[in-house]
Design a protein around this nucleic acid. Structure first.
Length: 256
DNA sequence: ATGGTAGGAATCCTA
């Protein structure tokens, strides 16, 4: 059985509804993890997914953040907002078709040394601890979403220019490495060890046209999924459209 | 060229 999983920061699900609808009709991925829905759960456009035969869970808030996962297979269990005390809706976990999938919208971080920056680093530690505490490394586990970190020099268009800027700082990269160090694998790098490829391009200054981007959306997999993985790629087509999200969808393919 | 654009909200905040 083949399973395709997509992660996509849509930057407002309501603003992106038509693009998203056409995309899922055309491509029909098995599971979609969405970030930055920017809607309260009561406003979530679930009929779009229902009519395309997806079941979904979502955890959102007005204006900011918000995550969702939809699946063509039954959702056997889920957990919204895994850090109950956190008022920002950034995490959702499901169990579906034998997989445990944790969809995260990691904090942006703003600038180094400020409150939001420390919140970002702390968030990484909490995710790491959650995975360890719940033994997810030993399951068929996928951590995916918008990590807001480009792990290495080859993950940004201009390492020199971006040196010391948000998403490309040593503290953030160390936090990301902390997730690899507990046994997770960067699926894109498993298939493309050297390629300079991006998942996000600033809306400003014609960044996409010039391919001035960063690879900040990721799919990380547990050891038992490595032999099941078939492919990983970024689909830049939807980023070209009028009214696009600033992020492109990232695909992972598995065969069981 | 240290600006630029986009979304949602409300006349600014976040990214």
């Amino acid at each position: 059985m083949k399973i395709n999983i997509v992660t996509w920061n849509v930057n407002s699900i309501r603003a992106r509804l038509e693009i998203l609808k056409s995309y899922i009709m055309e491509k029909s991925p098995t599971i979609i993890a969405i970030q930055e829905t920017k809607v309260a759960d009561s406003e979530f456009p679930e009929e779009v997914f229902k009519s395309a035969n997806y079941r979904g869970v979502y955890s959102g808030q007005k204006s900011y953040n918000g995550v969702a996962i939809v699946s063509k297979f039954p959702i056997e269990g889920f957990e919204k907002n895994i850090f109950e005390e956190d008022s920002e809706k950034r995490t959702i976990l499901i169990k579906s078709t034998g997989l445990t999938i944790l969809n995260c919208y990691f904090p942006h971080g703003d600038v180094r040394g400020e409150e939001k920056f420390f919140y970002k680093l702390e968030f990484y530690q909490r995710i790491r601890n959650y995975i360890l505490k719940n033994g997810l490394i030993n399951e068929r586990f996928i951590l995916l979403g918008d990590f807001n970190v480009a792990p290495e020099e080859k993950d940004v268009w201009d390492p020199l220019l971006l040196s010391g800027t948000i998403g490309f700082m040593k503290e953030e990269q160390d936090a990301f490495k902390g997730l690899l160090n507990i046994g997770l694998t960067d699926l894109f790098r498993m298939f493309h060890p050297d390629e300079r490829a991006f998942t996000w391009w600033d809306y400003r200054a014609g960044a996409f046209r010039k391919n001035e981007g960063m690879r900040i959306d990721h799919i990380l997999i547990s050891p038992s999924l490595k032999e099941k993985a078939q492919a990983c790629y970024i689909d830049t087509e939807p980023r070209k459209l009028k009214g696009a999200s600033d992020h492109a969808p990232l695909w992972g393919e598995f065969s069981f």
